[in-house]
């Protein structure tokens, strides 16, 4: 602030010294008399055509996938501070709860893992759509990083966080189950992808309060269904590896479709507005 002021002052002083009122008046008069004719269309077009060669060609957004991934990671890293503290606290709490349940209660730890896996993501989705929920969409769209970019990087961030947490928990409990680690990872990852796909779909179509409650309801009912049915537990825990990979692929496909939809929707204000179909 102060620096600005001082510069301005010196400028003013200098101007003051050299300023000549008479000259100024003559100049003003001259300028007022001078009439600028509006150029005709052809001239304008010609000028534009001439200038066109100097316009830099639009750089393609990112040269290759790896580079794109790196920028995404970088941007996600900056988002870490933006994502609210409650999210991180909740994640930690969920992790501790998960640890306690898997270790203390006499439930199947893998089952617990399947059930708890999607929760951090759901809470994270609220962060992703924070701008939309608070009516900041219009502002965000005009910022350097557009809404879809911000959303994507946050999505990436919470996805990575979620998967990391789950993996760590898996590693911690792996001695107790005696199963190969890959199989354990797949056991929760497959349902997880489906949950994520459904959650994304819901979050794109409904506003925050609605989609969180709806999703949690579905999630609870799903748990109830599974727990009340021993066959299903068995089936869920002992799926053939091949089927696992097929399901996983399908789930991932669903997710990528949703993400594409999300990006398309939030590139424009129009699309974002159509969310929230409450009344």
């Amino acid at each position: 602030m102060s620096r600005f002021n001082s510069i301005n002052e010196t400028d003013n002083d200098e101007l003051e010294e050299r300023f000549d009122y008479k000259e100024n008046q003559v100049l003003q008069q001259e300028l007022t008399d001078y009439l600028v004719k509006f150029p005709d269309e052809d001239d304008i077009d010609a000028t534009i055509d001439t200038l066109r060669q100097y316009v830099p060609t639009q750089t393609t957004k990112s040269v290759n996938r790896i580079e794109r991934l790196i920028t995404l990671c970088k941007r996600s890293a900056t988002e870490v501070t933006v994502v609210s503290k409650t999210y991180w606290i909740t994640c930690t709490l969920l992790f501790i709860i998960g640890y306690l349940i898997t270790n203390l209660a006499d439930t199947n730890p893998l089952l617990t893992l399947i059930f708890l896996a999607p929760l951090p993501f759901i809470i994270g989705l609220l962060e992703v759509f924070k701008g939309r929920e608070h009516g900041l969409l219009e502002i965000e769209l005009t910022c350097k990083f557009t809404t879809d970019q911000i959303m994507l990087s946050r999505l990436f961030l919470i996805g990575i966080t979620n998967v990391t947490l789950n993996t760590v928990l898996t590693l911690i409990i792996s001695p107790t189950t005696g199963k190969p680690i890959l199989e354990m990872l797949l056991t929760w990852l497959t349902p997880f992808t489906f949950f994520v796909a459904i959650a994304l779909w819901l979050s794109i179509h409904f506003k925050g309060q609605v989609f969180v409650t709806t999703f949690l309801s579905l999630w609870l009912v799903f748990i109830g269904l599974i727990i009340s049915n021993n066959h299903w537990i068995e089936a869920l825990l002992n799926i053939n590896l091949v089927i696992h990979f097929i399901c996983l692929g399908f789930g991932s496909l669903l997710i990528s479709i949703q993400v594409k939809q999300l990006i398309n929707k939030y590139q424009t204000y129009e699309g974002g507005q159509r969310v929230e179909i409450n009344y």
Binding site: F206, V210, S217, L225, N229, Y279
Partner: peptide, 19 residues
């Protein structure tokens, strides 16, 4: 007119069918 309710209802009916 809340669509999320219909969505949930239909999903529940689907659950009922498969069990």
């Amino acid at each position: 007119t809340r669509k999320s309710l219909y969505f949930t209802f239909l999903l529940f009916i689907f659950f009922m069918f498969i069990t």
